[in-house]
Nucleic acid binder design. Structure first.
Lengths: 349, 349
DNA sequence: GCGTGCAATTTACACGCGTCAAATATAGAC
DNA sequence: GTCTATATTTGACGCGTGTAAATTGCACGC
């Protein structure tokens, strides 16, 4: 069998050994680190590899190594740029640290999420970074993962997993930031929440309430019930605000949306009702949110929000995981690392 | 060692065999298909597994099986909901067909893309679905992949890989659809293109030109040069149209954007210049696009576009791949499967 | 020429499980 | 009770590579 490049395809190290006249174990060492064989052998092997098409078998190499050099990543959804940004940061950081990343997506299903965790265990990954699904997650599965390998949770932090290392955003800080900004320029904001399926959403809701009370304002929350069956973030934001605006309520308020995707729906509802949210119209409708979704600068009007430092979160999670894998001192202690949000003032509030 | 659930952790089948009194080969057969052992043994094993924590080693199981039951998927970017939708369709279809999906993202890098292909070869995946990066792809790597295992390309089709099976959209059809619609309601559209890094973009541009000429109109194309360094789709659409609108050009034209993300940038530019694109304003500015990006319904105004049937494309790609893996008759012939686009008339055009 | 010390290589075994041929258990017929 | 046919189980070997121990090769000094 020959590849299209004409090189003969070689299946095993044994064959390769015969083909270029170097013993198999020497080849094994060469592939792990060319510096571990003599200069002469390395050169000979290199020249040999130019003439044939061979890659060591992924499974056989991983089976016996102390370390597989792989880390597993689980994210809940793919259809959300917030998570894809996070995943990208994690993958890049892991690649730079020399790890092979195996990504699994829960696709909103606790069963799939639990199965992914099992897969990682059976693959002997060196460690795992998990962004949990939320309330519906199979927490036992995460618990088992944590018991058997280095694990770092990111983005969202289930209450029963508070003893697991976590890297995420400081929601009281970030939410406080945008609330203070909104209060400084106008009436205290109403919170556009969402059904309680997500820890981050809950944390932000709680942070909103706390901050409002600290400022002496009365918290007002809308949208905790699902207005539509099979709702998505944008659809939810649109449905809730469409209902409000149709009633003539909230049309002159500041709305703080639980996240940017909900805000996109809210902005759409505002436009449909002829409303023009914006900071420049004092006393009028303003819409702000949380996350800094990549499309925020391009909504109409562009979206005022508070940015999560997703890039740093991804990097920090990997760096923490690598430390745990290497058994660095300090890595056995429990760590919670929270990043500050940053205000992004644009046109919508 | 014991998991948090208290079950003793068992590392190998050998140990499990000793623990529950069934021979190891019988266990092996049980894990492949419980139906292949006697009812009595299956029951005994099931009860045994309730008392201990064991999962077969992923690598060891895959190493010797004729089929690894895995398919590899490569997508170019994560920060694009079009690709995540495609990936989701592929993953779900593959899971339903009983395959484990290994996803690798090229992260815009031809080297990473080529390495992913090599990884799949070394993992003995049963087959691969690849959405190529584009012009910059290492086509040799894809060629090698195609020579050594069942391969289906999706979404984008490099010229030099025309002999490889492909599943995607019929761009002449879909582009024709939206052009005809635009012409029916107003002036023939100008095409807002993008730098030539992507085969789909090129195909759509060519389809635009062909259709316009067939209708007796003169094609007008803007935006093929990168206006900003380090451009992204939305930024590109915004930059090009901002420049045009600032000059006072194109303000009363129909603009057909190469894809929805570019259109989002264009809509934003329009709003900044006080323009209100829409179908109801005859003779005025209209903006339409291609893809049916999930946010299209929530832009302001909502985006008229032509939908790619991403779901069907993903399913068809997997179904084709599975046929090739199984060696179904007909699967050895070359296949190109194109799906029609569907018009989504909304407010922007 | 011969031993010495060190680096490089090779030998030999291990890893965890798939698989097949051979052995055993089971059921049924007489 | 024996015998046959069939369903199950098991022993033994192999997969492609990692790795520790044993061996070889080499340069050097006497």
């Amino acid at each position: 069998m020959a590849g299209t490049d004409g090189k003969p395809v070689i299946g095993t190290m044994e064959e390769l050994s015969a083909a270029i006249g170097v013993s198999r174990p020497t080849l094994s060492r060469y592939f792990q680190d060319p510096g571990r064989v003599s200069r002469a052998s390395a050169e000979r092997i290199r020249r040999g590899l130019e003439r044939v098409d061979y890659t060591p078998n992924f499974f056989a190499t991983r089976m016996n190594r102390r370390s597989t050099g792989m880390i597993g990543v689980i994210i809940p959804y793919l259809n959300d740029l917030h998570f894809t940004k996070l995943l990208e940061a994690i993958e890049v950081a892991a690649m730079e640290a020399g790890y092979t990343v195996i990504t699994q997506c829960s696709h909103s299903s606790p069963e799939v999420e639990a199965r992914a965790a099992e897969t990682f265990l059976s693959m002997n990954v060196d460690g795992a970074v998990v962004a949990p699904l939320g309330n519906s997650s199979d927490l036992d599965a995460h618990e088992r993962l944590n018991a058997r390998l280095p694990l770092v949770l990111v983005d969202s932090r289930p209450r029963t997993l508070e003893h697991v290392d976590f890297v995420g955003s400081d929601h009281p800080q970030s939410t406080g930031l945008i609330i203070d900004y909104l209060c400084r320029l106008g009436r205290p904001p109403v919170f556009l929440a969402m059904p309680r399926v997500n820890f981050n959403a809950l944390e932000r809701e709680a942070a909103y309430t706390a901050r409002m009370e600290a400022l002496g304002h009365v918290p007002e929350i809308v949208g905790t019930e699902a207005v539509e069956k099979d709702w998505h973030f944008e659809a939810h934001g649109h449905a809730v605000m469409d209902r409000e605006f149709a009633r003539g309520t909230l049309v002159d308020r500041s709305i703080l949306c639980v996240n940017d995707r909900v805000a996109i729906g809210a902005l759409c509802a505002a436009a449909r009702h002829g409303l023009e949210p914006g900071a420049r119209r004092r006393g009028g409708l303003r819409i702000a949110a949380h996350d800094d979704y990549p499309l925020g600068p391009y909504t109409v009007p562009s979206l005022t929000t508070v940015a999560q430092d997703v890039d740093s979160i991804g990097k920090a999670a990997v760096s923490r995981l690598v430390a745990k894998i290497r058994g660095d001192r300090g890595a056995s202690a429990h760590l919670v690392q929270l990043f500050d949000g940053a205000l992004r003032v644009r046109d919508s509030a």
